[in-house]
Structure formats: structure tokens, C-alpha cells
Design a protein around this nucleic acid. Sequence first.
RNA 1: GCUGGGAUGGCCGAGUCAGGUUAAAGGCGCACGGUUGCUAACCGUGUGUGCGUUAGCACGCGAGGGUUCAAAUCCCUCUCCCAGCGCCA
Length: 427
Amino acid sequence: MLDIRLIREKPDLVRKNLKKRREPEKLKLLDGLIKYDKRYRNSLQRLEQLRHERNIITDKVAKLRSEKKPYKKEIAKIRKIPKEIKKMEGEKEKLGKKTVSCLMRVPNLLHESVPYGKDDEDNVVVETFGKHPKFDFESKPHLEIAEGLGLIDFERAGKVTGAGFFYLKGELAMLEQAIIRYAIDFMVKKGYTLIFPPLMLRRKPYEGVVDLDDFESVMYKIDGDDLYLIATSEHPIAAMFMDEVLDLKDLPIKLCGISPCFRREIGTHGKYTKGLFRVHNFNKVEQFIFCRPDQSWKLHEELQKNANELYQGLGLRFRVMNVCTGDIGSIAAKKYDTDVWMADNHYREMGSNSNCTDYQARRLNIRYRAGEGKPPVGFVHTLNNTALATSRTMVAILEHFQQKDGSVNIPKVLWPYMNGIRTIERK
RNA sequence: GCUGGGAUGGCCGAGUCAGGUUAAAGGCGCACGGUUGCUAACCGUGUGUGCGUUAGCACGCGAGGGUUCAAAUCCCUCUCCCAGCGCCA
């Protein structure tokens, strides 16, 4: 959420940002917002005037009563006012809600280094890492490899849960755990604190972390409770300090989340959906930072460097993309995607690194102060990046390190976590 | 799940049982000013949010609703904390 005062004082700046984002329909939203905000403030003033009139008489009544003088006449004068106040309150409330719901939909201001573009075609390659895999046989997609090794069962999962779910078996299930431990150990060594968060959130904190429009389509809701299954540990971690004032000396707070992630992800027709790439639940190790505004751009690069080192450690071929103005989400001011090479010779998203500046923190009301007893200075900045999402990392490993005989070599960095297994072989 | 106790400003803590000059005693912290050879101590002022921003006004006592001319105070619903009991890992 942007600062409403920024919109009042510099609407043109916000307009320019919307044009850069190629969101012309949001220009109308912004105009509506400005109108609602004005009407809201008008009704607020009229309401306060009414309350003021009532308060004057109310004080008079109190005085007369304490002096044991008659006061009934005074009360008769303002009998009607409470009703009028209630009406005005309703109006003010309605306008206030409209204003806020518009405000919540106005996207974050973009950083100047974000390239201008229409969609993911216009994202700019920042850097490419790793050797391009070459095969002297016909390489296979990961699903075929995993099924050939008897390590995955989508069919039985489909029977009991539906499409998009799977059973991992044997060495592949172990590989998943190895990926998690590798990522955790790496992040902890870098000074990040490991967090296992709650796997459900109430609606209110959830509204602070995601776009309202995403709720019904993306999230699993628990029937009978005000609870949603988390789509990533980013969400409960971001919400962790909701309504708090953090001490400057504690910033930056660097965290590493580990959790299952639950995603309904309907409406993904036409996208790459075979196998483990797009599933309803998977595990993910996540990087998250709360920091001072002046630290966030440097830390954004740090988060990317961490991801690069993790993927390089695995020996993967991947590239870092600077996501363009038309493709970036509404919460991020700048975003790097990390896309990994796949056996059909396409690069696909492995991770996503966002600097949300104060946009998320304002919604969640997370501020910072210079020290104990001092007043809050402003909102913190929040950043998040994937460390490793297990399902997609498994896809990458299976496809990069497949052998002619159908076996798969395990990256060396995972050996310590694989009980001596260095190659997954056909039985 | 049941019973009882609680939630007040950056923090601690009065006020709630009898609704009304309570921005809310008192204290701590913090900011500014004064005094002092430095520090400490001491004295004074300030220290929630919103709208107009000059005066001012409104809101505000966990969240939401109700009663009333008037609610921190009375009533209802919900959330969280503490204690005890029950139940299950």
C-alpha cells in the first residue's frame, strides 16, 4: 500500500508509475481513489462538526447535573443528534472503505532500474551462470526420468487427492530432504535465522501480504475457521511483526523460512503443467529480510547472490532476469527472477527475488524506531527471495544430470545428505 | 473444551463495582530548554492518531456491535494472555 499522503500531494508521480507499469485501467482506479478520498474527508469534517455540537450540550448537562440544576431541557435539544451522527458515520465508513480498497490496489512505485516492457518477453537477462548441459543421447523430461526410476506416483495421488498432487518415493523423497538441508545449512552459515512458521494464517494478516484479488483463486481455505493454508513461508514471516515497532539496532533482521507451500493455482491453462513443475503442495526454503529503507537495495543484491551461489553449488545452468515493468507484481518495486534451464531447452522460473520497499510493511503496519522509548520513524522495508523450492529443484536436477541408462547423478553438495547415494539407479 | 482473572499511551500502572470538567493520577523512558567545570542529579516544557494545519475540532482505554443526551466504566459477540480442571498428542 502506498502512503495516501503521497497520492494527495503528488498524484502525477503515481500516474507516471502506472503508465510505466502499463496498467491504464488503474489510472481510472486512481482517479476514483482521489475522488473518494476527498469525499471521505468532507464527510469526516461534517461528522466531527455534529459530534462537536453534541459534546457541547453533553458537557453542559454534566455541569448542570453536578450543580443539581434542571437539565432535561438541554437533553431535549439534542435528542435527534445521535441519529444524525449514526447516519453520517455510516456514510463516512462507506467512503473510507472505498478509499482504502482502491488504495490497496494501487501498485508499488517502481525502481528506476526496472526495464520498460510489456510481458515476460521483455524481461532483461542480467547474468547467465553454469555450463549448458549437453547430451549424447536424447534427453528426457523429468517426469519420464522419475517414473522410469519408479520414484514418483502421480496416478495414485490423483486417485486420493486429485490432479497436481504426487507421492515421492525412495531416493527422490530423500533427495527432497537433501535439498532442504543443503539450503538451510547454506543460509544459516550466512547468518540467517531459521524459522518454521505456522502453516495457516487468518484473513487479516493475509490481506497484509498478498493482493486481495488473489485470495479465492490461489489460496486453500480451512472450512469452518478463519484460516488459510500458507502459499509460502514468506507470508507468515512477513506477518510475524504485524503492528509492531522494531528497534533500529535489530535491523536488518535476516530470516530463512522452511515450510510446505499450498497453492490452488487455478487458471494456469497453457502453462507448463506436466510433472513436478507446477503442483499443489511442495516444500520451500525462503529468504526474508526486514531492514531500514537505506539498506534495502544493497540487501536485494545480497539475496540474489545467495540464490546464485545455491544454484551454482548444485551445478545448474540458470539465468537471472530483471523483470520488466509490465510483468512485475504489484507489491514489488523491483524483482529478479531466477530461471533455470530445462531439458526442452526453455528457461523456467526457479525463484523470485522482490524488494517490496515499504509497500508490504505499510499494509502490515511494521515500523521502526531509533531506540527504546523513541517514537517510530517510519516503515521498514521487506524483501523476499526463494532459496530453494524443492519440487522445481528436483526437476532441474533430474533433467540436468540424467544419464543415458536412465540413472541420475546427485550433485556433490548433496552427497552429505544422501546416505552415501551418489547416483540414483534403475533397480 | 470448561471455570475464574486479565488486556488502558513507547513502557509500567491508577481509574471500571455507584456512566458525566479524565489526554486520562503517579512513575519510567525519550525529546527540547534551564542550571552546573564534564557526567550525574535537579527544575521546566513537551511526548497517540486523524481532519484543517493558524486558532481549533474529532477520535481514542484488546477488536466489533448495542444501551444512553453522555461509555475506559453498563450489556452482547469475538481475539489474545494468565491460573486451575478436563481431553489429546
